[in-house]
Amino acid sequence: MSSSHDKPVDPNQVVLWSDDYEGHDVISTRTFGFWMYILSDGMLFATLFAAYGVLSYSHSYYTGPTPAQFVAPWYTFIQTMALFLSVLAYGFSMASLKTGSKAGVINGIMASMVLGIVFVGLDIHDVLRMISIGVTPEVSGGLSAFYALTQVHAAHIFVGLIWMLVMLYQILRKGFTEDVVGRLISLRMFWQFQAVMWVFIYVFVYLWGYMS
């Protein structure tokens, strides 16, 4: 047991109530909670990667095409660059937040959004191309896993774009309140995390798939 139970206590010195307790820091609490969410999102992707790994044997593609026959690593490389530049633009936006520049933040987010839209547009175009050559999720377990992993990521990017739109509105409407700044920081974590996930997808699904 802790030794504090045994020590003699001076009743005039003991502190029983916290007089100067300010309560928790809202932004730090919120950021921590969002970090926890990111952890669970990481598990979600990990599970999808596990499913992709199990369903990427040659027999997983049944008699249908394998990734080597339909992925286009250079095309996807453009997506990669768009997403990375988008994260960079968001980083500039957050740098402007430190100086309190509304214009800087808004320009950064808008640039980030445009690049994100490029990413999603290229993804949709790629999916339509694959479907047109008969590469659909119904063909085989392997293709099901391919689509699940890549399109769940794309859905995350789509949600991030909606979030940016909402944040643009809130910045213009309310300025940098505690709520808005907290959300901008969470969005940064979300956006960077999606880029990190994309690195894994690009390497393991597109590059590796192309080579195998």
């Binding site: 499913a51 199990v54 369903l55 027999h59 997983s60 593609y61 049944y62 249908g64 999720p137 119904e138 063909v139 085989s140 377990g141 392997g142 099901s144 896993a145 689509y147 699940a148």
Partner: peptide, 21 residues
Amino acid sequence: ALVGADRYLGTHFFTAGFGGN
């Protein structure tokens, strides 16, 4: 969600054929 994909979208994650596992 993958079971749902099998039942709603016709994917083959857990089917006995078509490369499912």
